[in-house]
Design a binder for these strands. Structure first.
Lengths: 144, 144
DNA sequence: ATAAAATGTTACACTATCCATAACATTTAA
DNA sequence: TTAAATGTTATGGATAGTGTAACATTTTAT
């Protein structure tokens, strides 16, 4: 799953959980609504759970619930929860005998450039909440 | 080759061509300096040639030359020359019977968001010229 | 307590993509 | 005319991604 696909899938799931809040939904139920394999959803949701975006409970009548209000969940934290690798990733040259100072110089330059870009992307996402998205898409939700 | 690797490799090559300007350099020569396979370099350089960033001449004593001054070559045009796909690419769901209006809604939302991000990245790159980079890295070049 | 049912994680076969290189057709200048 | 360069296609091996299954672990309802 690409970073962008993971992000959009996560948002779809979270919007669904916001709509049906506070009813816990199992990965199987979500799978049927979203159309993504339940096992894969569990992997995604387990990461969101570790960052306290959703709350999971096991056992009978368990499932997943939003752990905070949609206006407190931002795209940036979703993105960081599901993606450790950066959006722009430089495959720096393997260090061998042929690597000279010049190569190191270039690699550092692009590493910095891509880091800058990354920061800008995350800044943009930091100001978009789940509530923003649902409002924009005309999805009603109930919370608290 | 990832987009970022193609970009940094291209810049390395272009800097080298700027340094030795106006002497044509063959893909084999460049390969030995940059440490990237000559065939792969030709593929990259052929794309740069189509966007008039380098000029190629075939035959004996042929090779590649910068086609304009380093201060007129910007990262954005290099990036566009070598990469058709966007940096952020949404794998939109295959359209089947299960795809409902909701899915289309989400896909459009993220398509727009990623397009915005793409524009910002390109804007950033539009203001970085090859000359900027060479100055910053302390690489002297001769042109015209 | 026990069993049912959920998450969380690992494993796996299959596929697709990537990558380095080779091979060859095409072009061009000496 | 020929040598030598680019431009493009092909290829085989490695690598990564995908969808799914399997199973251990946890937890609640009875």
């Amino acid at each position: 799953m690409s970073a962008s696909t993971k992000l959009s899938t996560s948002v779809k799931v979270l919007c669904y959980l916001a709509e049906v809040h506070p009813m816990p939904k199992t990965s199987k139920m979500i799978s049927e609504v979203i159309g993504v394999n339940a096992s894969k959803l569990r992997k995604l949701l387990s990461m969101l759970s570790k960052q306290n975006i959703v709350k999971s409970t096991q056992g009978i009548s368990g499932g997943f619930v939003l752990s905070k209000n949609p206006d407190l969940i931002h795209l940036q934290e979703i993105y960081c929860a599901i993606e450790d690798r950066k959006a722009f990733h430089l495959n720096v040259s393997k260090l061998n005998d042929n690597v000279n100072d010049r190569t190191v110089l270039f690699n550092n330059y692009f590493l910095n450039l891509f880091a800058d870009v990354q920061v800008e992307i995350e800044d943009k996402m930091r100001y978009i909440s789940l509530k923003n998205i649902m409002n924009e898409l005309g999805i009603r939700f109930y919370y608290k």
